[in-house]
Amino acid sequence: MRVAEIAELTGTTVRTVRYYHSLGLLPIPGERGGWRDYDLGHVARLSRIRWLVQAGVSLETIRRVLDEPEATGVERIDDAPAAGAAEARSAAGSVVEDLAGALAAVEDHLAEVTRQRDMLAGLLERARTGSTVSPMSPRMAAFFDRLEQAAPDEATRCAVRKERDLTDLACYRGQMPPEAEFLFVDPDPRYDAESLALYSQDPAELSDAQIEQRARAMVSRLEARLTSEHLAALANSVDTEAVQALFRLITTTGYPDTRLTQTLEREFLTAIDRWRPSE
């Protein structure tokens, strides 16, 4: 049969058949009457190639699988002469490894596609409800939306946006500890006003003593909102190494101020130790 016929019979294209020839996957048949004459053996091999491709097996792996026919059946291995039995079993093991690797690759891809699907579903839901589409949680986004709208001047609004950008970056990089949700409260006029007052201050203009006072005030605000039981649970669940990694990221950006970042890190780590119930 001609190339167009074998392509149609196996559900592929003439171009693909020729591509397999170029890779050495499919033997080139002899000619008859000036055109290549494919036989049933070519059809069977091409069918197997297409079958393995549809299973997600790479062409390189397919080459190894097809070049080791002894590995396709246990009976053939068991019936092989003693001199060739070890070689046949080795070939079978190689095919098993290749197919196991192909399966692992497909499973990894499936996991990634599942993750993307879940992300898109979450983003779609947020878009439908009018929430900001962002790597940060809806609660965090709502907090920054609220403060931006309530900011009394452009300088304060700019500071809120920078903090938002930093939070976005940390969430995108996966470096925002889940416990940080406690820092972003639901609508609370008093808390929002206090937050805006802090954003209105330029840390670069504060003295070291004022930096210390501001850092302690931020920890105290959290302690005032949560019960001792909540603080203990928070301290027990938080990964202090993750907290340190977050502050290293903040330091790398240079915002809002290195002194404030370092002082906040120290105060929060000290507070976490203090919140943990004594043994």
Rank of each mutant, 00 (worst) to 15 (best):
M1A: 11
V3H: 01
E5Q: 12
T12E: 07
R15K: 09
Y19H: 15
Y20S: 11
H21Y: 02
S22I: 00
L25G: 04
P27Y: 00
G30S: 09
R45A: 00
R45F: 04
D67K: 05
E68T: 14
P69M: 00
G73N: 07
E75Y: 04
E75M: 07
R76G: 11
A80H: 09
G84D: 13
A85D: 05
A86Q: 09
A88F: 08
S90H: 11
D98I: 01
G101E: 04
L103G: 06
A105S: 12
A111I: 07
D118E: 15
L120S: 11
L123N: 08
L123E: 12
L124G: 11
L124D: 13
A127P: 03
T129S: 15
T129D: 13
V133S: 09
P138M: 01
R139M: 08
A141Y: 04
A142Y: 05
F143L: 02
F143I: 04
D145F: 03
L147C: 01
P152F: 00
E154Y: 02
A155P: 04
A155D: 14
A155I: 07
V160E: 08
D168F: 12
C171R: 12
P177R: 09
E179D: 11
E181F: 06
P187S: 05
P187L: 03
P187T: 08
D188Q: 10
D188H: 07
P189V: 05
S195C: 11
L196I: 03
L198E: 14
P203C: 06
A204V: 10
L206I: 06
E212Y: 05
R216S: 14
A217L: 12
V219M: 06
A224W: 03
H230D: 14
H230Q: 15
A233Q: 14
N236F: 04
S237G: 12
V238N: 00
V238Q: 02
A242I: 06
A245F: 07
L246D: 07
R248F: 08
I250L: 15
I250A: 11
T251M: 10
T252I: 10
T252G: 05
T253L: 13
Y255C: 01
D257S: 04
T258N: 09
L260K: 00
T261K: 00
E265C: 12
E267Q: 15
E267A: 15
D273S: 13
